Simulated assay, not measured.
Amino acid sequence: MHLSPPVEPMLARSVIAIPASVRRPTVYEQKADGFRCLVFARPEPFLQSRRGANLTQSFPELARVASALGVEAVLDSELVVWGTQGLDFLALQNRARRRGAGAERAARERPAHLIVFDVLELAGDVLMDEPLRHRRAALERLFAARRLAAPWALCPQTTDLATAQAWMDPVWGAAGIEGVMIKDADSRYRPGERGWLKLRTRTTDEGIIGAVTGTAHAPTSLLLGRLDVADRLKLVARTTPLPRKAAAELGAVLHAAGPEHPWWGWRISAGWGSKEPMVFQPVIPELVAEVDTDAAVDLGRHRHPVRYLRLRADLTPAEIPLFGEHA
């Protein structure tokens, strides 16, 4: 029996902390910042995205190593591209758009890797009903028997809570490890179900309040910036909707800005990957906000909305790190 694409991957639901107590045997895995990829390692290989799209032509070097694995298998993995300081999500996105000669050139210049964390089929045996600990053992045997090395990588896994907590350090986040996956070692692979848990690394950051949605006196969310080396205000983040109390407090101190504002007339998308413009009101960039963030930062900008925590009356815009720098 063989699995055929598309196969729905098993999913995870977000949690805000590692569960304090568990009744089932638990394993923890690093969560890398990349694309979910199911690898059909066969003479005619296929690389499938989380939503079932064909990634094979965009990553020809991975298709070749999947074809040459030496045993037919279906592997669940995170597809990543390494940068100079860690995983590079923007480079990965750029590679996913390439085809043909452009994809081959990109494969030479910015090769991709597969961080494998599960095996669904191996040598004709479908393993999805096997407990995770058995699937992991099979995966480790595969890596050892085939002496797999780059672009293959075996996802780090541990049963030690202290090790998992150490992976939540922002230092790991800066390198592209978004957080930790939490899994029942006895669980079977359930396509499409959110049977795993994921915990993203969280940290705090500061930004200059440069604009709001809503109005200056009744803001609904904030657009945050930082100054660059030329003293230009660069957009770095947008917040989730403001709680009522925070909106009232901010509305009492924010002041609308006019055409002199550096973002006046800008077109900003309403969301990640959206072409719809956001309607916003520039405000005088004189106040600093502290926000709760995750580790997904691309070229100095937070990929996901951040959560407003408080005003930092003790800081001026000139005192926070420049655009692209960490606190």
Rank of each mutant, 00 (worst) to 15 (best):
H2A: 10
H2V: 05
P5T: 05
V7Q: 06
M10P: 01
V27T: 07
Y28T: 04
Y28H: 11
D33N: 09
R36T: 05
R42H: 08
P43L: 02
R50A: 11
R51W: 14
N54R: 14
A68H: 04
L69D: 03
L69E: 08
G70E: 03
A73G: 09
L79V: 03
W82A: 12
G86N: 00
F89S: 07
L92E: 14
R95I: 01
A103E: 12
R110M: 10
R110P: 07
P111T: 04
H113C: 14
L114T: 01
D118T: 11
D118S: 15
V119N: 03
V126L: 08
D129T: 13
P131F: 04
L132G: 12
R135E: 11
A137C: 14
F143T: 06
L148N: 03
A153C: 13
Q157P: 15
D160I: 05
A162G: 05
Q165F: 01
A166R: 10
A166G: 11
W167F: 13
D169M: 03
W172N: 15
E178W: 00
I182F: 12
W196Q: 15
I208G: 07
I208Y: 05
G210N: 02
T215S: 13
A218D: 04
S221L: 11
L224E: 11
L227N: 13
R232N: 12
R238S: 11
P241Y: 02
R244D: 15
K245P: 14
A248G: 08
V253Q: 13
A257P: 01
P262S: 10
P262H: 09
G273V: 06
S274N: 09
E276S: 14
E276F: 12
P277N: 09
E286D: 13
V288P: 07
V288E: 04
A289P: 15
E290R: 10
V297P: 00
G300H: 09
R301Q: 08
H304V: 00
R307N: 04
Y308R: 14
R310N: 11
P317M: 10
A318K: 15
L322I: 03
